[in-house]
């Protein structure tokens, strides 16, 4: 009964929270009920959905940019050994630049605008995608490329029917770690240079020392990201790997 276990586990956590908030009565540790009231009030005023929407939009945009650019670069490096040898030090460098540095530099160089914000998040994720997709491209089976060249597949067909299916396990891996990383960085980007979104709200409540507000927004956003995982990522993955599950 995994579903029951999960429910029991979450209920236990909530109970622990409620007991702790009862023992240490303070504005710094609101009870679950207080957080729920804040959440309801924010939802009723429409602020909650406006800010969640803004953050979700940035997550989606940064995710798409990071996956497309990272896949293109990673595939190229995986296929060309010479380019890989040359660019590998760049990759190592970018992998080790802290997210905060990229965000600050992006705002200084490109201004406090949406493109800089999304770009900064994408740049933080791209090196990880490149590393994963490079492994994927190295594992390409040459027999399929030869098939495509003998039967003169068009480029769109090659990408859709030969390249992407072979990359699919790597895409799934990069996607998963990607969404988790991106939404955390998006909050930092919003905190530093945007005037809406979950990150901005959290910085606002931080200045007011309003922990109930901080927790309300955090929990709402975690719930959305879990819903994305269960309702989009997993069904898509099941569709992409349907050919694997049927045994001979």
């Amino acid at each position: 009964m995994p579903a029951l276990t999960v429910a029991a586990s979450l209920a236990a956590l909530g109970l622990l929270w409620w007991l702790a908030a009862g023992a240490w009565q303070s504005r710094a540790l609101p009870t679950p009920v207080a957080v729920w009231r804040t959440l309801a009030a924010e939802a009723a005023s429409g602020d909650l959905f406006y800010n969640l929407g803004a953050t979700l939009g940035r997550v989606v945009a940064a995710y798409i940019v990071a996956m497309v650019v990272g896949t293109a670069i990673g595939t190229f490096l995986g296929l060309s050994r010479r380019a890989d040898r040359f660019f590998n030090p760049w990759l190592v460098l970018f992998l080790n630049i802290p997210a905060l540095v990229v965000i600050v530099l992006a705002y200084i160089w490109f201004g406090l605008n949406e493109a800089a914000a999304i770009g900064a998040v994408a740049v933080n994720k791209i090196p990880n995608v490149v590393v994963t997709m490079r492994e994927g491209a190295r594992a390409f089976d040459p027999a399929y490329s030869e098939l495509a060249s003998v039967y003169r597949f068009s480029w769109p067909d090659r990408i859709r029917h030969i390249l992407l299916p072979q990359l699919q396990p790597y895409l799934a891996a990069a996607s998963r770690s990607g969404i988790a990383l991106i939404w955390k960085i998006v909050l930092v980007v919003e905190l530093l240079g945007r005037s809406n979104g979950v990150g901005f709200q959290i910085s606002l409540y931080f200045q007011l020392f309003d922990v109930a507000g901080i927790l309300a927004y955090t929990l709402a956003f975690v719930a959305i990201m879990l819903a994305v995982e269960f309702m989009m990522v997993q069904p898509l993955e099941r569709h992409a790997t349907r050919w694997r599950r049927r045994a001979a």
């Binding site: 027999a143 399929y144 030869e146 098939l147 029917h161 030969i162 299916p165 050919w243 694997r244």
Partner: peptide
């Protein structure tokens, strides 16, 4: 080809 070389995902 010697191997059938079908795309397993199609």
């Amino acid at each position: 080809f010697q191997e059938p070389t079908l795309l397993p995902w199609r």
